[in-house]
Computed example of a mutant assay.
Amino acid sequence: MSHAIAIVGLGKIARDQHLPTLAASDRLHLAGIVSGHARDEGAPVAATITELKRQVPELAAVSLCTPPMARTALIKEALALGLDVMVEKPPAASVSVAERYAGMAREAGRALYLTWHSREASGVEPAAQWLSGKTLRRVSVAWKEDVRVWHPGQEWIWEPGIGVFDPGVNALSILTRLVPGTELHGATLKYPADREAPIMADLTMAHGDTAIEAAFSFDQRGPQTWSMTLETDEGTAELREGGGRLFVDDAEVAVPEGTEYGRLYARFADMIGTGAIDADLSPFRLVADAFMLGRHERVGAFRWDD
């Protein structure tokens, strides 16, 4: 059985990841798009979810790919129409808002999936299995990319509370999968002189006696860096390329085939029609803690065309 699903919001992430993944799926198919600026995508286009549901009565679910600041109304609309809901990360503009979503879905009796796509990278579950039974001593994270490449001209990324934590929360989603219960102890957040969100962040965390450090940047030129090193009493594992590759003591380990978004949508296909809720907010809470505990520094002004 193939479920009819709609994409809500047709920006870069939807075009780069969501549309190709749905095109390759045998369990879900693109039944429509909700967007004010969609081109011909081979599916009905509507301005609202309600309008699309009228056009496509068999619509079963929506995947929200809009910026996170205005999703509550969209989730409420979708649930009222009897639709299951999948949400691109970060789930909302604040933790308190995101915490409402599970209750809304539960009351409506519909499935809700707040996704963390980096958790589905091919090396993450093998890394979790490798860590089992070992004593973790130290974790270091380097998550550095160029906002100009991944969010070209998207000013919403500089709204308060977003910035470098848009990619940084990907690293935190892997970290909280591998080291649940991680606590943030301190942070330094660096803000461009002309922006309201940080472009760099250094985090100090811990889990018991395990020291955890993370360095995030949204201003990385040249090769991009998404790595996590986990030192244990029985060797060292390193996740590279956003968790897609796993190395143990510098030797690469075979990992499952498939893509992050392929696994996300497979999981959502399992949830449709069941009323299941997957709404873990532990990575998002670490982001909120960073803003609460972080020291603020100002750096040079940001320019898209630098």
Rank of each mutant, 00 (worst) to 15 (best):
G36Q: 12
P20K: 02
V8N: 00
T21W: 01
A70W: 01
L10K: 01
M69L: 11
E51Q: 11
D16E: 13
Q17W: 10
V62D: 08
I33N: 02
R39N: 15
Q17C: 13
A73L: 05
L28T: 03
A14K: 08
V8Y: 01
R27C: 09
A24Q: 08
G32A: 12
H37D: 13
L22S: 07
A24D: 13
M69D: 15
L74T: 12
T50E: 14
S63G: 15
I75Y: 08
A73I: 10
L79R: 09
V34I: 10
Q17I: 04
A43H: 03
C65W: 11
K53P: 04
A31I: 01
H29F: 10
R54F: 11
D40G: 10
G32Q: 14
L10M: 06
P57T: 06
I33L: 09
D40A: 10
M69G: 09
S63E: 06
Q17L: 07
T21V: 12
E41W: 07
L28S: 14
E41I: 14
I49L: 10
L81V: 11
S25D: 14
T21K: 00
L64P: 04
R54K: 09
E77M: 00
G36L: 01
E77V: 00
P57K: 00
L30P: 06
V56Y: 07
G11L: 02
L81S: 12
A73W: 05
H18T: 07
A80E: 14
A80G: 08
I33P: 04
A38F: 02
P68S: 09
T48P: 02
D26G: 15
V56N: 12
K76Q: 12
I75W: 08
R71H: 01
H37A: 13
P67T: 14
V34D: 00
E77I: 01
L81A: 13
A6T: 03
V62T: 06
A70E: 14
E58Y: 02
A14Y: 01
D26W: 07
M69T: 06
I33R: 01
A6W: 01
Q55L: 13
A73Q: 05
M69I: 13
H29G: 15
T21N: 02
A6S: 03
A80R: 08
Q17M: 10
V8K: 01
K53V: 05
D16G: 11
A47T: 08
L74D: 11
A14M: 07
R27S: 04
G11N: 01
